[in-house]
């Protein structure tokens, strides 16, 4: 599903964010990538999302070399991925349910069914009552939960989550983890998740890596 070959990213003038990263992620995997602040986790996910270009190396997503795709083609590819950003990016002029429903709109769905699905997704995360609120009226936690709902609404086969639990309190973090776990156990879902510290209790994780000095170091392969 995802293949990284000799991936490197250098930010001018001399900051080497990532170097020599080789990684292959199979279908149905749940990969955890941990590391301290500024170690390059977000950069790595942005490279996999096609939001940034590597200085060296290749990124293959669904067997497609991202470097050879146009910006538009990369955007089309992203439409089929559940993306959770570190910052809870929401469209400010849309209500919460409209934000959550946005990926469905991009997939060409409209009407009452769309609203219904968005409301169900929000209900799952305890945000049903806030469905018509604008992002500016929400707390940071609520915005992050809405981003999770948006990432899951299309039922994607891949989720790229950049520190999805960092802004959440333990109760909501558990809620999101449970939701991801349920989807993952249902099958057909690959998750790549970054976190500042690798959680001790996540038996579903198939692989754990640590980003250290721009290099990806395996923290141990876990058998399910």
């Amino acid at each position: 599903m995802i293949r990284l070959e000799a991936l490197a990213k250098r930010f001018p003038p001399e900051r080497q964010a990532l170097q020599g990263i080789d990684l292959e992620i199979e279908n149905n995997a749940w990969v955890l990538i941990s590391g301290g602040s500024g170690c390059g986790k977000t950069t790595l996910l942005h490279l996999i999302m096609g939001l940034d270009q590597p200085s060296q190396g290749k990124v293959f997503l669904h067997h497609q070399h991202l470097g050879r795709l146009s910006a538009q083609a990369r955007a089309r590819l992203r439409a089929n991925i559940g993306l959770i950003f570190q910052e809870p990016h929401l469209l400010q002029r849309r209500t919460l349910w409209e934000n959550v429903a946005f990926p469905l709109e991009l997939a060409g769905q409209f009407g009452r069914a769309l609203r219904q699905r968005a409301l169900e997704s929000l209900e799952q995360l305890g945000l049903g009552a806030r469905a018509t609120a604008l992002p500016a009226q929400l707390s940071s936690t609520e915005r992050q939960l809405a981003c999770v709902a948006r990432a899951l609404i299309t039922g994607p086969s891949l989720i790229l989550a950049d520190e999805p639990l960092e802004r959440l309190d333990p109760q909501n973090a558990a809620l999101v983890t449970d939701l991801l776990r349920a989807r993952h156990r249902a099958g057909g879902l690959t998750i790549v998740q970054t976190c500042s510290e690798s959680p001790a209790t996540l038996p579903d994780a198939t692989a754990r890596y640590t980003l250290c000095a721009g290099r990806l170091v395996p923290s141990g392969l876990l058998e399910r």
């Binding site: 955007a75 089309r76 992203r78 439409a79 400010q92 002029r93 946005f102």
Partner: peptide
């Protein structure tokens, strides 16, 4: 600008 960037990140086409 920010809305455009987010839409583009999530996968909206230039036409959309």
């Amino acid at each position: 600008q920010q809305e455009i960037r987010i839409s583009h990140w999530i996968g909206a086409s230039a036409r959309t």
